[in-house]
Design a protein around this nucleic acid. Structure first.
Length: 171
DNA sequence: TCAGTGATTAGG
DNA sequence: CTAATCACTGAG
């Protein structure tokens, strides 16, 4: 691992269950409205793993919203929830394996809705390629972090089996 | 505990 | 076209 090095396509085209824990402790770099860039360590993520995962939006097929999840890893999947909050997800895996990792929190901004609101992340980031983007990307931090795992939040509708998968990773 | 809020989706 | 749903948050 090389501190300061941008995470590559190869990092993101792996399975969501490998990418998600790997995101913990990495730095999210974003170009702010004033033109400066800021970095925030990723503290909480969840994996959504393909068409069979009843909690994953892609389990109900390819729609205009889920389209990007069917592309290769390294793109952003952004959607609005409860009419108010943009959710920031990173597409993972190979083409036609619709997976994503939800960024639930970064340093200073815990909560998936709060971090996007605070950092100005919205629908305009949908489909962004974070391997080449100049406004949002991720870098190695050089830090290895201990983290916890647990059930994913807010997916009661997915049924017992999928609800209880320990696919939430957090510091 | 619970309302707010609007894009997205499935179904007529 | 309609109505239901929703990977959340902040106020009380």
């Amino acid at each position: 691992m090389v501190p300061g090095k941008r995470l590559s396509r190869e990092f993101f085209i792996r399975d969501a269950l490998d990418v998600a824990p790997g995101m913990i402790g990495k730095n999210m770099i974003i170009r702010l409205a004033d033109g400066t860039s800021a970095g925030f360590m990723v503290t909480e993520v969840e994996a959504y793993r393909g068409a069979e995962d009843k909690a994953c939006h892609a389990c109900r097929g390819r729609t205009s919203r889920t389209e990007i999840m069917f592309h290769e890893g390294g793109h952003l999947y952004i959607y609005l929830i409860y009419g108010m909050y943009w959710m920031l997800n990173i597409v993972t895996g190979q083409e036609n394996c619709p997976q994503a990792v939800l960024i639930r929190g970064v340093e200073n901004f815990p909560g998936p809705g709060r971090l996007t609101k605070s950092l100005g992340i919205d629908k305009s980031f949908y489909g962004e390629d974070i391997v080449t983007s100049e406004r949002l990307w991720f870098e190695d931090s050089g830090v290895s972090t201990v983290f916890n795992t647990g059930m994913r939040i807010g997916i009661d509708y997915a049924g017992d089996y999928w609800k209880t998968r320990p696919w939430r990773y957090y510091i």
